[in-house]
């Protein structure tokens, strides 16, 4: 790492020092990760703020850390991001309103599929068994026997 990069890192670290540094609380990095993992990285495709290496995600982790240090609960920090970006920022949609559909639809569809299978099986069992296949003509039987012998040889 070059001196320039180190300096930049140090400056970034300084910049991220919370405004409420007067009364800092120890922040558990696992809690930061836990909150970040629930948030969508806004400049990525299908990545969470915890997983993205982008500068934007890095800054968001800084804000999460800062808010936790100021005494916010993980839920309050998450609500802050929802307030600013809308529910879109949450990787898992909330389990209420229209979004509830996303949570319930798979189980409903699974249930319908199960019912359909049960109905179809019942129908099959009610249907008469197919007639036994017609006996082979003696000529065909003889030909199969001969070809089997050829294979064994």
């Amino acid at each position: 790492m070059t001196a320039r990069k180190l300096l930049l890192l140090a400056l970034t670290a300084l910049a991220v020092v919370p405004a409420h540094a007067a009364n800092p609380r120890p922040v558990d990095e696992e809690t930061v990760h836990e909150v970040a993992a629930q948030l969508r990285c806004v400049v990525c495709q299908s990545l969470s703020v915890a997983d993205s290496p982008s500068e934007t995600a890095n800054q968001m982790r800084g804000v999460i850390r800062e808010r936790l240090a100021a005494g916010d609960s993980p839920a309050q920090v998450r609500d802050y991001f929802v307030e600013k970006y809308g529910p879109w920022i949450l990787l898992a949609p909330p389990r209420r309103g229209f979004d509830l559909l996303v949570w319930t639809a798979p189980f409903v569809v699974l249930g319908i599929g199960f019912i359909v299978i049960v109905l179809v099986i019942r129908r099959w069992r009610r249907a008469p068994a197919p007639a036994a296949s017609a006996p082979l003509a003696p000529a065909v039987r003889e030909r199969i026997r001969r070809e089997m012998e050829d294979l064994d040889r």
């Binding site: 500068e55 800054q59 804000v63 600013k84 970006y85």
Partner: peptide
């Protein structure tokens, strides 16, 4: 730290 940008929900 991007604080103002995040406060305005900038993506």
């Amino acid at each position: 730290g991007g604080r103002v940008a995040i406060d305005y929900g900038v993506y």
